[in-house]
Design a protein around this nucleic acid. Structure first.
Lengths: 270, 270
DNA sequence: GTCGAAATGGAATATTTGTTCCAAATATAC
DNA sequence: GTATATTTGGAACAAATATTCCATTTCGAC
């Protein structure tokens, strides 16, 4: 047990948390992780609820509070209860409030994008073809190098995949990132490609995917449901339909799918 | 005591409250008034605290709850606690558990990312500071050129902002996209910067933001709540806390915020 | 492998918190 | 002004929640 004085603000608490996080044993680490991702639950839950959600016995959770510097759980909870005010109101109320700030106030716009994102995610959950996803993982996990192709609005998706794959030490190559160098000659037998494009379909993406497909390099397409030119090729297609907000499109669902895909690939390969 | 069935949503509760408000005797009326003006305290307080704040004995407060239709105070409090953060259970912990059970099929992973995205979006809706967002739009709309800085996992966000700004014909510059050329000399008086970074904070981003800030170039930071180094600078900070899934992070909330921000900027400038 | 130190889980206990009940007070009707 | 019904406050009780303790397990050094 640590006798250091308890944090008196949420910020101080989080700081303290990040300080000790690295030195904690397994169970206490679980507590820290849980608290980091769900700070809003602390004020309104009991130790029993929190500890079971974190996957530890209540006693471990209390110990965790003491290590942070509190006398016990109640002491820690008091901090969160007192600081609770700004976390209210709840989601539906808040969204309505954001909307009511005037037609194109930034807050109203944000509310729309948030709603669009939620819709897209729900949509994705209900429409995704697990077989296709499984097949895509299978294909890509076997590949020597994974080529990522996505321009314009699809580029952020491709670049996040590149980041995640690199982090998992899976060989990957992000195309078209620099200038307009066409790196199609890097495509080799044994490789695979992920091509991402949405209406209006960027010609460069379609062209590169066609090139790969014709040379027997397997292509996984992340695209929308309507007549995407990528579907004419012999590809494994993953469909995502995002909601447009004005001229812009939320990317929440596409990114979630892309992330799940690359993490599954990483898991499969190790 | 009233035997009517208890309200199951906050809205139903408020409706019921306004129905009975007129017919209540003095003490119970005090309870109703207090609850009407301080709904946010219900989830995080004890009867003793609430009743004394309302100026009535605890027993009166419990009676009040029963008249509304609840079994007692605890019953009423449950409604408010659950409404406060409906998303349960804890996703990071759950996916870890799933992994340990060998249930890491791609679909299960995707489900986790979808849920994490929804959680993050809800979180964003309830915690975002509209004032800060408004200030950020104001600052950036006035800028001659907007500099976008975000590396590693923040890069997709920066690149999507660059795409959207370009589409709206707002002058913007995406830093660090190519090689590691340090383009800090492109920063000029009258410009503004958006710096995006999350723990563990990429030093390059922090450094560039510091450089800009020291030269009087306004900086808008998109970062997380933990002691982010960007907060030590004189910046307009927009907080987003995303849920980690394993070692990866959903970007749904961050992207939604970023998109709303740039679209608002575009609207403001035209 | 063996030893010692650290961590862990769960049961026993202490404390806090919520609820009920009833006597006293207050209001209402006649 | 009395009788009756309603409301009120607080104390006794019941339930829940947090905390502590210790036997058992796990981990790390030798």
């Amino acid at each position: 047990m640590d006798a250091s004085s308890p944090p008196t603000t949420i910020e101080a608490f989080q700081l303290r948390l990040s300080e000790v996080a690295g030195t904690l044993p397994k169970r206490l680490r679980q507590c820290a992780d849980f608290v980091t991702s769900n700070p809003e639950r602390i004020a309104v839950s009991t130790v029993a609820e929190l500890s079971s959600a974190a996957g530890v016995p209540p006693s471990a959770f209390v110990r965790f509070c003491q290590i942070i510097g509190f006398k016990g759980f109640s002491d820690m909870q008091r901090l969160f209860r007192d600081a609770h005010a700004p976390r209210w109101p709840d989601y539906p109320t808040r969204i309505k409030a954001l909307h009511e700030q005037g037609q194109d106030s930034p807050s109203a716009l944000l509310a729309e994008f948030i709603e669009a994102g939620r819709h897209s995610l729900e949509n994705l959950a209900t429409t995704l073809d697990s077989k296709a996803l499984e097949a895509a993982v299978e294909t890509l996990a076997k590949a020597r190098t994974i080529h990522l192709v996505g321009f314009r609005r699809a580029f952020p998706v491709a670049s996040y995949m590149a980041y995640a794959l690199e982090k998992m030490e899976v060989p990957a190559m992000l195309h078209g990132a620099v200038g307009h160098i066409d790196a199609r000659h890097a495509l080799a037998t044994g490789d695979a490609m992920v091509a991402i494009t949405f209406a209006p379909y960027t010609p460069a993406t379609v062209e590169l995917a066609t090139y790969a497909s014709e040379r027997g390099i397997p292509v996984v397409a992340i695209t929308d449901t309507l007549a995407s030119p990528l579907r004419r090729l012999d590809v494994t297609a993953l469909s995502v339909s995002e909601i447009d907000v004005g001229a812009f499109r939320a990317l929440s669902a596409t990114l979630s799918l892309a992330t799940a895909l690359v993490v599954a690939i990483g898991a499969r390969r190790s």
